[in-house]
Design a protein around this nucleic acid. Structure first.
Lengths: 221, 221
DNA sequence: TTGACATAGTGTCCATATGACACTATCTTG
DNA sequence: CAAGATAGTGTCATATGGACACTATGTCAA
C-alpha cells in the first residue's frame, strides 16, 4: 500500500500507433479484457512507473505491443477530465507513434488480449475518451504533413517517390499532382537517389530514394 | 491519508503567463517560500484537485495570481522526468496564458510570497525544470505568431496597427516592414476599423481597430 | 502662427512560389 | 511484339512575399 496526505491521481500513457498498409492509414487497438468497457477496443497504454520518464513509458508500451523500437514518437496532449475513467481519477499523457510500413508485425499480445490494426476510416467504438485522442492525433498528423518531413517516418529505408506520394494522398484523403509533388519534395533537399530501382510488376521500374538524415523530422517552409 | 495499491505520482499544473508591457515580453514568476528551491523564482502552479479538469486547475492558478479570467490559455506540454522534484514524483502539465497589456494587475500574492513580472530576456535562475518549460512556451509562441492570430490576445479590445506590429517585433526580436505588415494583417480580414482614433502625443493620431471575433484564435495560411 | 517633431499611413515592382495541365519512357507479360 | 501499367518529365499563368521612401496629421514650444 502506498499512502499520501493528499489524494493522487493515477497517470498513464496511451499511444496512437499509426502505420500505412494496404493503401490505408491504420492504427493499433487492443480489446479490453476487464472492466470498465470490457470487450471494447482501446488504445494501447498503461500506468507510468515511478522511476520511468513519460516518453520511456510510452516507448515501453509501444514495444510491448508491436515489438518495434526507435520509431518516431511524439507527445500529443494530456487528457485529464475527472470522469474519464469511472474507477479512479486517471490522467493520461497521450503520445502518437509512426511505424514504417515494413516493420508492421504484431507482438504476441501481452495479456492474451486481442490486438489488431484498424483502418482509421472504419474504427470501432472506442473505450474511454479514446476517440477524442485519436481525433487529435490525426489532426496533428495532417498538420505536420504540411510543415514537416514527418511523412518519411512511414516509409522503409528505401522507397520510391510514388510510395511517398501515396502516404500524402492517404493521410490527406486527397489527390496530389504528381509533377508538382516531385518538384517540391526534391527541392527540399532531404532525399538522395540510390542506384537501385524497384521493380514490381509489368511496368517501368521506379528509382529508390533514401532520406539524408533518417529519424530526423525537420520543419520545412 | 489516501492509500493506493500502486504508487501514484503527484500531478500539478504550471503556467507560463505572458504579457507585453514597457515594450518587453514579460512573464510572471513567484518566489518560492519553502523547500526545495526556497527563495528561487518559479512558475505559478499547484496541485490538480481530484474533481477538477486540468484546464480548470490552470485557470484557477492563473486567477489566483493575476485576478484575470477568460484570457487565452493553451496546454503546452507535460513534463514528467522522475527526478524533476526531489520530494516525490511530480508530473506537471504545463500551460501558457497570454494576458492583454491593459489587464496586467497583480493580485495580492496568495501565500504572501513575492510575485513579479520579469522580462523574458532577463530571467533569474528558475526552480525545478522551469527554464525548460519557459523555453518551450516561448518557442510555441514564436511559432504560433506565424500561423495563427494569437498576437491579438496581447492587445486590449481596441488597438492600433502600430501596437499590433509592436507585439510581433517584441516577440520575434526583429523589425517588421510597416507597409508589408499592414497589407498582410488587413488582408486576413480579421480586423474591423472603428471610428475612434488614439491620440497620445505630438503626432498624427492612429486609427483604432477591433478584432472581429475576439477570444478566437484562427489558424492562418 | 508657424515650424519642428513625432508617429500614422500609403503603392509599386521584382523575385519567388504555387498550381494547373498531358505526354513520353520503360518495364512485364501474354 | 503489342497491350497494359506505372515512372518520369516542363511550361506557363497567377499569387505571394519582400524590398523600398515619401506624404499626412497631429502637438507643442518658440
Amino acid at each position: 500500500m502506498y499512502s499520501y496526505r493528499y489524494p493522487h491521481p493515477a497517470v498513464t500513457t496511451d499511444i496512437v500507433i499509426f502505420t500505412i498498409r494496404d493503401g490505408q492509414l491504420k492504427l493499433l487497438l487492443i480489446k479490453r479484457g476487464g472492466e470498465p468497457h470490457q470487450g471494447r477496443w482501446a488504445l494501447p497504454g498503461g500506468f507510468v512507473e515511478m522511476d520511468e520518464d513519460l516518453e520511456t513509458s510510452a516507448r515501453r508500451e509501444l514495444e510491448e505491443e508491436t515489438g518495434v523500437s526507435g520509431v518516431y514518437l511524439e507527445q500529443l496532449y494530456t487528457f485529464g477530465r475527472p470522469d474519464r475513467d469511472p474507477r479512479e481519477r486517471v490522467i493520461t499523457v497521450a503520445y502518437y507513434a509512426l511505424i514504417p510500413s515494413d516493420q508492421v508485425r504484431l507482438q504476441a499480445a501481452t495479456d492474451a488480449e486481442a490486438v489488431g490494426w484498424f483502418a482509421f476510416e472504419e474504427l470501432p467504438p472506442l473505450a474511454f475518451d479514446h476517440d477524442a485522442i485519436v481525433a487529435m492525433a490525426h489532426q496533428r498528423l495532417v498538420a505536420k504533413l504540411d510543415y514537416s518531413t514527418i511523412a518519411f517516418q512511414f516509409l522503409p529505408r528505401e522507397f520510391t517517390l510514388s510510395e511517398l506520394q501515396d502516404v500524402y494522398e492517404i493521410i490527406l484523403r486527397a489527390e496530389v499532382d504528381k509533377r508538382n509533388f516531385r518538384k517540391q519534395v526534391l527541392a527540399l533537399g532531404k532525399l538522395v537517389e540510390t542506384k537501385k530501382m524497384k521493380r514490381d510488376g509489368a511496368h517501368r521500374p521506379a528509382r529508390l530514394y533514401r532520406v539524408k538524415s533518417p529519424g530526423k523530422v525537420d520543419i520545412i517552409k
